[in-house]
């Protein structure tokens, strides 16, 4: 994503400093249809339009077994908000929106523990940027860590987080 990385920060001299360039060719958008992920979708399309990048939108359907998820993400899905069965609807909306904005976007539905699945898919797709919504705010869920925190821990790809704060 970024060129001309320089090696040693401690010995940086003005003469060594090069011009920086950034290019974003592939964006990975993780969505679940929540308010923050609608905002994340808008950002993803805007960034894609600006950089003429491709977007891959993924919806991770969480495994239903509680033991599979240390983040209690499954609980949200079991209650049917915002997850279960909505993936096609959500991804269709994202796809339509991309088409309206002349952005090349493909969708995928994945299954597994949410954060790990996003990070694993990033390995496969090789994006220059991951964009994700964040709506976790407080309480038990927070103390266990959010999906976003877990994604940030499990990938080296820059992560753009959009909150509905």
């Amino acid at each position: 994503m970024i060129d001309n990385l320089y090696k040693s920060s401690a010995t940086s001299k003005a003469a060594d400093v090069q011009e920086l360039f950034i290019d974003i060719r592939k964006i990975l958008l993780a969505t679940d249809g929540s308010q923050s992920s609608i905002m994340a979708t808008k950002q993803a399309i805007a960034w894609a339009r600006f950089f003429e990048a491709d977007v891959r939108a993924i919806y991770v359907e969480s495994d239903y077994e509680m033991l599979e998820s240390p983040y209690m993400e499954t609980e949200k899905h079991l209650k049917g908000k915002p997850g279960v069965g909505r993936c096609a609807e959500v991804l269709d909306a994202v796809k339509n929106y991309a088409e309206q904005n002349d952005v090349n976007l493909e969708t995928r539905v994945l299954r597994g523990q949410v954060a790990r699945t996003i990070a694993d898919y990033a390995e496969v797709y090789g994006p220059d940027l991951i964009i994700i919504g964040n709506s976790e705010k407080s309480g038990i869920k927070r103390s266990l860590g959010s999906v976003v925190d877990a994604v940030m821990k499990s990938t080296d790809v820059p992560v753009l987080v959009i909150s509905d704060n």
């Binding site: 940030m152 990938t155 992560v159 753009l160 987080v161 959009i162 909150s163 704060n165």
Partner: peptide, 22 residues
């Protein structure tokens, strides 16, 4: 306490781009 970036991400209304150092 979690990391600084986690805390910023949690409370910021402005989009946050988090970069890893590798």
């Amino acid at each position: 306490l979690g990391s600084v970036s986690e805390a910023v991400v949690k409370d910021s209304a402005i989009p946050v781009l988090v970069i890893k150092g590798s």
